[in-house]
Design a protein around this nucleic acid. Structure first.
Lengths: 114, 114
DNA sequence: CAGTATCCTGAAAGATACTG
DNA sequence: CAGTATCTTTCAGGATACTG
């Protein structure tokens, strides 16, 4: 990921956390309600398991996501956004809105709205 | 830059355009009124000239920025956001707001407000 | 000064095998 | 199934020399 040493710019600093190829997509999926590793892995962009594992660890370190016992499979772990992580939703929304308006062929899943 | 082949997700698609280390910072600077290559180059994050050149070309290809004759130095070129490029401002704003609130040590330049 | 061209390197990404 | 570990590859990024 990027690493703009010592920049005090809030934009550059945010990009140091979420400005890479995968992080925001993981956050997107969690915001959409996915909870399990395998669900996250099966997103259309096909993230590799090691990358996914790495991002989950980093996002947890940033306190943007947390692990919790899976409500579905006993004994399994699951992931969800923390309250801090949920505050990223306006960013996701601004990106999605721009994409929908300006990039041909993009669309939301049928069960999602902004 | 990322390259999520054939994703129809608007978020993934936007990230294919602006989701790299530098692009959004160039846009930030243009949004703040910088117009010349040297101004863009002198931002605190210190972008290399070849990278800056590359991003300016790509942003022009995406019709997010355009070249125009410098109003200051005759014969020189300058850069500015197109109207399409200006529509990225809500994205910049959502990022800046989040950074200011959640990342210690970030602040806006004295002459900038949201 | 405004870029372009090259070369180099490290980090991220990808594939995949492996373990509990 | 849920990850971790390794290995390889690719490419963005950085330094810098160069040109008009």
């Amino acid at each position: 990921m990027p690493h703009h040493l010592h920049s005090t710019c809030p934009i550059a600093s945010v990009l140091d956390i979420i400005g890479d190829k995968w992080t925001l997509l993981v956050i997107r999926d969690l915001a959409l309600g996915k909870q399990h590793f395998s669900e996250l892995q099966q997103s259309p962009e096909r993230i590799a398991t090691n990358i996914l594992s790495n991002r989950l660890t980093r996002l947890q370190e940033s306190e943007l996501i947390e692990r919790f016992p899976s409500p579905v499979y006993s004994g399994k772990e699951a992931y969800r956004l923390t309250s801090k992580g949920k505050t990223l939703k306006p960013i996701l929304k601004s990106l999605a809105l721009w994409g929908l308006k300006n990039i041909e062929g993009t669309r939301l899943p049928d069960d999602v709205s902004l």
